[in-house]
Simulated scan of single mutants.
Amino acid sequence: MCQSHEDVILESTKTVGVMMLNRPQYLNALNLSMVNKILAALNDWQETKAVVIMRALGQRAFCAGGDVKKVAEAAYIGDYNYGDEFFYREYKMNNLIGNLKIPYVTFMDGITMGGGVGLAIHSNYRVATENTLFAMPECRIGFFPDVGSSYVLPRMTGYLGLYLGLTGQRLKGPCVYHAGIATHYVESKNLHKLEQELLLCSGHKDVKDTLDCFHKQTDEGKFILKPHLGMIDAVFCENEVEMIMTKLNMYREDSEWVQCVMKTLYDQCPTSLKVTTKAFYKGMTMNLDQCLNMELQMAKYAIRQPDFYEGIRAQLISKDNNPKFSPATIPEVTDEMVDAFFEDCTCTKYGKI
Rank of each mutant, 00 (worst) to 15 (best):
N249V: 00
D307K: 02
S149K: 09
M1W: 07
L265W: 04
L225K: 00
N99C: 04
K282R: 14
T346K: 10
I232V: 11
C291M: 08
P103L: 07
G221V: 10
T285K: 11
K352N: 08
N43G: 10
M93P: 02
A234E: 10
Q305E: 05
G78C: 11
V338G: 09
L199I: 14
M245P: 03
M136F: 01
G168F: 05
G58R: 06
Q59E: 08
A128R: 04
D209P: 01
Y82F: 13
R60V: 07
V241N: 04
W45V: 08
Q25S: 11
N99F: 00
E238S: 13
H184I: 04
S149C: 13
G78K: 11
R23W: 02
G142E: 12
C63K: 07
D289W: 01
P137C: 09
D79C: 05
Q290Y: 03
F143T: 04
G142L: 09
L162A: 05
K319S: 03
G83C: 12
I330W: 00
F223V: 01
K352L: 08
M250G: 03
M286I: 11
S12F: 13
A64L: 08
H122P: 01
S272G: 03
L171Y: 11
D344S: 06
A56V: 02
L199Y: 15
G161H: 13
D84K: 02
G65N: 06
N293G: 04
L194W: 05
L30C: 03
K14D: 14
N81P: 01
L21Q: 01
L200R: 15
E238Q: 13
A75D: 12
K205Q: 00
M298H: 06
T277Y: 03
T48K: 15
I330A: 00
K282I: 15
Y281M: 07
C213E: 14
D307N: 15
N287I: 01
R313N: 05
E310I: 03
I141W: 05
F236E: 06
Q196M: 14
I121S: 04
M294R: 05
T285H: 09
N190A: 13
A135F: 03
F143K: 07
G83F: 11
I77V: 11
I317L: 09
F308G: 01
F134N: 14
R313Y: 03
A302C: 13
G17F: 00
V258H: 06
L27V: 00
Y350H: 01
V71Q: 09
V235T: 00
Y266M: 12
E138D: 11
L166D: 00
L133V: 10
D79N: 13
L316M: 07
A302Q: 09
G221Y: 08
N124K: 13
S33N: 15
L21K: 01
D254K: 14
